[in-house]
Amino acid sequence: MERYSKEFSTKWQSKYSEEFKRFVCNEYLSGLLTKRKVELKYDLGNSRLTYWLRERGYDNIKSRIVSLPDMKSVKNVIKEIDSQKSITEIEKELQEAKLLAETYRKIIEIAEKEFKINIVKKSNTK
């Protein structure tokens, strides 16, 4: 990989090669180094990398690539969750929820009888 293009004779008049710009941008976007560390590593100016990223259409704020887990590991996690929470545990939770709902219904009935007020709205009223 060539750092400078051959258009100019000295470093100060040179233009960075397109291949070098892409390489540096990809190294930053891989997420291993910060902008400052990349700029120091390749002896670039303070805003050179930011300029190159903007040139290539990367948003300055959201420039990092997010690594996603591969599907095999996701499937393994799902299998582990399924094995941990077996069908019997789910049935037990359902039974407890039904009992709790029945308890609330009874409490409302008792409160309506003792205090002689309508707590539950009737279906045909507005």
Score class of each variant (00 low, 15 high):
residue 1 M to E: 08
residue 2 E to M: 04
residue 4 Y to H: 05
residue 5 S to I: 06
residue 5 S to F: 06
residue 6 K to L: 06
residue 6 K to Q: 05
residue 7 E to M: 03
residue 9 S to F: 01
residue 10 T to I: 06
residue 10 T to D: 04
residue 11 K to V: 08
residue 13 Q to A: 13
residue 14 S to A: 12
residue 17 S to Q: 06
residue 17 S to N: 04
residue 19 E to L: 00
residue 19 E to N: 03
residue 20 F to L: 00
residue 24 V to L: 02
residue 24 V to C: 03
residue 26 N to E: 15
residue 26 N to C: 12
residue 28 Y to C: 07
residue 28 Y to E: 00
residue 30 S to Q: 04
residue 32 L to F: 03
residue 33 L to Y: 14
residue 34 T to N: 09
residue 36 R to K: 14
residue 37 K to Y: 01
residue 38 V to Y: 02
residue 41 K to D: 12
residue 42 Y to G: 03
residue 43 D to N: 15
residue 44 L to I: 03
residue 44 L to P: 04
residue 45 G to L: 09
residue 45 G to T: 11
residue 46 N to V: 10
residue 47 S to F: 11
residue 49 L to T: 05
residue 49 L to Q: 03
residue 51 Y to E: 15
residue 51 Y to G: 07
residue 55 E to T: 04
residue 56 R to C: 04
residue 56 R to T: 09
residue 56 R to V: 06
residue 57 G to S: 04
residue 58 Y to F: 12
residue 59 D to R: 05
residue 60 N to D: 14
residue 60 N to Q: 14
residue 61 I to W: 10
residue 62 K to V: 09
residue 63 S to D: 02
residue 64 R to V: 06
residue 64 R to Q: 11
residue 65 I to Q: 10
residue 65 I to H: 03
residue 70 D to M: 09
residue 71 M to Q: 15
residue 71 M to P: 00
residue 73 S to W: 07
residue 74 V to T: 10
residue 74 V to F: 04
residue 76 N to G: 10
residue 76 N to M: 12
residue 77 V to F: 01
residue 78 I to C: 11
residue 79 K to M: 09
residue 79 K to T: 11
residue 79 K to R: 12
residue 80 E to W: 04
residue 80 E to I: 11
residue 81 I to V: 15
residue 81 I to R: 13
residue 81 I to A: 14
residue 81 I to N: 12
residue 82 D to S: 12
residue 82 D to G: 10
residue 83 S to Q: 15
residue 86 S to W: 00
residue 86 S to Y: 00
residue 88 T to K: 13
residue 89 E to D: 14
residue 92 K to S: 13
residue 93 E to Q: 11
residue 96 E to V: 10
residue 97 A to D: 05
residue 99 L to T: 15
residue 100 L to E: 11
residue 100 L to F: 01
residue 102 E to Y: 01
residue 104 Y to L: 14
residue 104 Y to C: 15
residue 108 I to H: 06
residue 109 E to I: 07
residue 109 E to N: 11
residue 111 A to C: 08
residue 111 A to M: 12
residue 112 E to V: 05
residue 113 K to M: 07
residue 114 E to A: 09
residue 115 F to H: 07
residue 116 K to S: 11
residue 118 N to I: 05
residue 120 V to F: 01
residue 121 K to V: 06
residue 121 K to T: 02
residue 122 K to D: 10
residue 122 K to R: 14
residue 125 T to D: 10
residue 126 K to S: 11
